[in-house]
Design a protein around this nucleic acid. Structure first.
Lengths: 151, 151
DNA sequence: ACTGAAACAACACAACC
DNA sequence: GGTTGTGTTGTTTCAGT
């Protein structure tokens, strides 16, 4: 994981459709070498997958909310329960007042309410607090670059 | 935006590297027709881009936090200020107690503290509350499917 | 709008440095 | 680990329906 690998990752985050020739040129490598580097980045899990960034509103999901979940038990093994709700796009164990923070996309506030109901049905859950997003300022499908972290 | 388009979007979210031939086969279309459909989905913005999903920890970003930001003024025009901090991967205007919710990735808690310091330096900001993620249960780079929303 | 085929470009593998 | 070359595969365009 050197500076060339990081440059490749940055390029591929911006546009994963470009050819290995273009990719190589961007980082100062031949087509074959760029290809081999990317293959290894995939193999080692640095690139988890390459995916289409789909506009949620194109699918009718106009409501975005973050929900903190209170519980009466340890929630570290509840990933399957939350993942079973397709409207939940992220779930995290957090430090602080609540146990779990989830990110939810729905078509309507009615549907959001239904998701809250289903979260309440999960064993150990005894409370939720939803925060509705009025306007997304931006969502980068990206990890930070140029922020000085070491790989 | 019919059921075939939705099937294409789902396929491409799972794996954007597959060939148009495979894509067409998955949705019951010829190579050329699949290609034309995907071209239009890109053109109309349903597919914003195709991107590599990079593991943040591979880049040394092991700390994930959500920060609510309090302010003394309307924050609807502050997207550039927040976007200028590369560690901020999402920013939203929210309803509720705080004005803005941001998602932050850093290499360390020290670096997180530095981000908080720079958020405080934004005009109108008069408070932050950080919630540290102890363990991400899952993050889907996906919009929900099969959740009953209309396109 | 989809099909099928032909021209073109990119990928994947190999031999070598 | 890199480059350059070559057969194979996928992409892209277009006439026909």
């Amino acid at each position: 994981m050197d500076h060339i690998d990081r440059a490749l990752l940055e390029q591929l985050q911006q546009d994963a459709t470009q050819s290995y020739a273009a990719l190589g040129q961007a980082v100062g490598l031949s087509t074959g070498a760029a290809h081999e580097r990317v293959r290894k980045l995939r193999e080692h899990g640095a690139i988890r997958r390459t995916t289409a960034d789909v506009d949620p509103s194109a699918l009718g999901y106009g409501v975005l909310a973050y929900v903190t979940v209170d519980s009466t038990r340890w929630m570290g093994d509840t990933a399957p329960e939350f993942a079973a709700l397709p409207e939940i796009v992220e779930a995290h164990i957090i430090a602080g007042n609540a146990s779990v923070l989830v990110k939810v996309r729905t078509a309507s506030t009615e549907q959001l309410q239904d998701v809250l109901r289903r979260i309440h049905a999960i064993d150990g859950v005894n409370g939720t607090r939803a925060t509705i997003v009025l306007e997304p300022l931006f969502e980068r499908p990206a990890s930070p670059y140029g922020a000085g972290a070491a790989g």
